[in-house]
Design a protein around this nucleic acid. Sequence first.
RNA 1: GGAGAGGUGGCCGAGCGGUUGAAGGCGCACGCUUGGAAAGCGUGUAAAGGGGAAACUCUUUCAUGGGUUCGAAUCCCAUUCUCUCCGCCA
Length: 419
Amino acid sequence: MHNLKEIRKDFTAFEKALKKRSTQIDFNKLKVLDIQNREFIQKKEALEKEKKDISKSKDKSLFAKSKEISDSIDQINEQQKKIKLTLDNILSNIPNVPHTDVPEGKNEKDNIEIKKSGEIPKFDFDPKSHFEIGEKLKMLDFDLATKTTGSRFVFVKNKLALLERAISNFMLDIHTFKNGYEEISPPLLASENTMFGTGQLPKFENDQFEVKLEEGTDRKFLIPTAEVILTNIVKDKIIELKSLPMRFVASTPCFRKEAGSYGKDTKGMIRQHQFYKVELVSIVEQTKCLEELERMTNCATEILDLLELPYRKIILCSGDMGFSAEKTYDIEVWLPSENKYREISSCSSCGTFQAVRMKARYKNAKKETLYVGTLNGSGLAVGRTLIAILENYQQKDGSVIIPKALRPYMNNLEKISLN
RNA sequence: GGAGAGGUGGCCGAGCGGUUGAAGGCGCACGCUUGGAAAGCGUGUAAAGGGGAAACUCUUUCAUGGGUUCGAAUCCCAUUCUCUCCGCCA
């Protein structure tokens, strides 16, 4: 969420910056409401002062007057609250402003590749898709998932289940022991307020799975990413400078409705309602967001380097970024069956956008209270890493070589084959 | 599910109708002390919002929302969250 105080300073600049994101916002309404809101506040405060003075004087002859003032305060208050509500409503639906580094563009076609790494494997046969490989091995079972649950779910079995677990553990080990992240095993449900904090609500409620605990209690949602719950660790906090930066990592299932993607990636486990993801979250001084973003992205690509998977790094254009992000790098892994790169990680700096929503602040060296910067990135998506391994390491006979880095996590297994 | 207790500043914790934005402590900052540090002593230290170029100033805030009152952290009601005990389940 944006800080109105900051917006006010240069309203046209704000408007211009947001134009890049191709969203429709009624800036004029926002402006008018802000002015009205402040007018009412001023009126209210003047009356409150008067009332306070009477009360302090303890002059009985003025008590009746004080009561009258209370009534008019109530009236003004009601109007002001209404305005504030619509104001907040507009404000909480406005996406973050893209950083000046971000290339302008409409959609994914305008993203810019900035790095390519690894060797694209050459096959002397037609490379199969991950679901063909997995089904042939009898270790990916989509039909069974359809029977027990429904579409966009999968049973991962046997050695592939072991591989999935190994991927997760391998990533966690690198990020905790080497990259300095603190491992967290968080709740997978988040409250409505928590979901608001990172920007999933109110605008993207349709993408979320809501869970009913008990009638009448607060709303709860299955987390669409561990970002939600990890970032909100600092919600409503004022953090001391010495405890920054904070870096968290978690491997969790994620749940998404994928409401807007009917017909997209319907085959295989590219796009599922439930998937594992290792998530990185950093809480930093607001001035350090961009350098932390580079660091975080390197932590993510390091995994791909260690797994010896070919990938590229792109910077998202203004039109393709997520709601809360100010700058995003996507890392895409090579998928032989599709003959193209597919997203396996997305690392974003959110600047202070989420912090304002969460009321997460810190004291800087000058003892000023400022909003923290928040970042999140996948390090990496476990399901898609599994896919990438299956496809890039597949052999002519249908078996799959296990990347060297993962073998210690799999009882030194070197290859997964049918029997 | 039954019975209690409680939510106060960055943190801990007093206060239970009127200069209380809130004692005390911790933490933090600055100063004194020291060869240097620690300890000790002294001083300072909430957030949000409004006005102002600024100095500064005003309003709000003691879980949330209502109510009583000229006046509420303090009294009443509702909601919510946390904790303890009993039961149940793991």
